[in-house]
Design a protein around this nucleic acid. Structure first.
Lengths: 199, 199
DNA sequence: ACCTGAACACCGTTCAAGT
DNA sequence: ACCTGAACACCGTTCAAGT
């Protein structure tokens, strides 16, 4: 009975992740459960544990996929622009992603591994890859600066953009006469870069 | 039997919030449940609903208290310092709070109200109060700037510091040859303020 | 009025049993 | 080998019943 042998392990993993992404996009991370996932794909709870270690593992893998699509958005935003414009495009692309794929983007930061465990290395590698994009452009912009200064600036800047995305979603930001979140982002970039390039 | 009339409603509210704070400080927001709260204070589940609308209400009230103590830390950090130093002190105090009261601080941002509902006005008012602190110092620093510019700068800056706190906790930050999170904060502030004051 | 505790509808995870 | 579905230990919330 059931779905026996209808899908390979890899196919099962794929449709489970797709179901999870759909549930999160629709109702946020809180709307995700093992039972809802298997309900959408015609399996029963036990099957999930053939493919994922547990629900946290499933969420981590889903978030990794979100990071991948975010990365491609970011790469596309850079295109062949000169560094200063590329950095602005990166920031606005990040904010745009946060505003359109809100729930899936939020899930990346809402999810916490249980007490002792930390995220898989492949996950942190993908986050590092995003910092890389910023660092590359900063290096092009200020070739004379030390790698340490560049790394520090990339983190300061990216944290700032991320913080704007977070607080912006929480409606903790747009109380300033309707100045939109994109303008806050521009303010951060313009003034930081002005200070950084002249220092 | 039980605890009948041992506490007033207000006392019950207080010990429940204290129990919740203890549980969160110890095991994070995920370690909080109605049953664990009442277990710690010698009541049964039903009693919680005499004092709180539901668990989300309890969490929101707990987070408001955390915001209050954070505010007093921030006010103390300002002391009577000149504006530029005061802004740096505010940022470092925020980061220090995030590093010491990690779980309670994280809970503020991890918690999301269910689908439709939004946070009570008293909550958003407290967040606005924190922006106020930054705006006041920025105004002292740059009296000639318009209130709109000041408000924008306060949000950009504060989002940045907050983002550093978030990513710093997730260990997504200190891969830069051991440069600590405080240094990233300084980089953000120094360069942003340099650009802002000279613009 | 205050508080209990059973009940309900959920949840994540495991694992013997079936094919 | 793959998959089920019952079982277990949790969870938030409600509400009749007790004092």
């Amino acid at each position: 009975m059931g779905r026996r042998n209808e899908h390979t392990r890899e196919e099962l993993r794929e449709i489970a992740l797709q179901a999870a992404e759909h549930l999160v996009a629709e109702h946020g991370l809180a709307g995700l459960s093992t039972r809802k996932v298997v309900g959408r794909i015609g399996y029963t709870v036990g099957s999930l544990y053939m493919v994922f270690r547990n629900l946290d593992d499933l969420i981590a893998q889903m978030n990794e996929r979100t990071l991948e699509t975010l990365q491609t958005h970011l790469r596309a935003a850079i295109a062949d622009q000169p560094p200063a414009a590329a950095i602005r495009a990166l920031a606005q692309a990040y904010i745009a992603f946060a505003l359109t794929e809100t729930h899936r983007w939020l899930a990346i930061y809402q999810h916490r591994m249980p007490e002792g465990q930390s995220l898989p290395e492949s996950f942190t590698a993908k986050v590092a890859g995003m910092f890389e994009l910023v660092q590359q452009q900063l290096t092009l912009l200020c070739p004379q600066r030390s790698p340490e200064d560049i790394a520090l600036a990339a983190r300061a800047l990216w944290s700032g953009v991320h913080g704007i995305g977070i607080l912006g979603f929480d409606q903790k930001l747009e109380m300033v006469g309707g100045r939109p979140i994109q303008e806050v982002t521009s303010s951060l970039l313009d003034h930081y870069l002005a200070g950084f390039t002249r220092a």
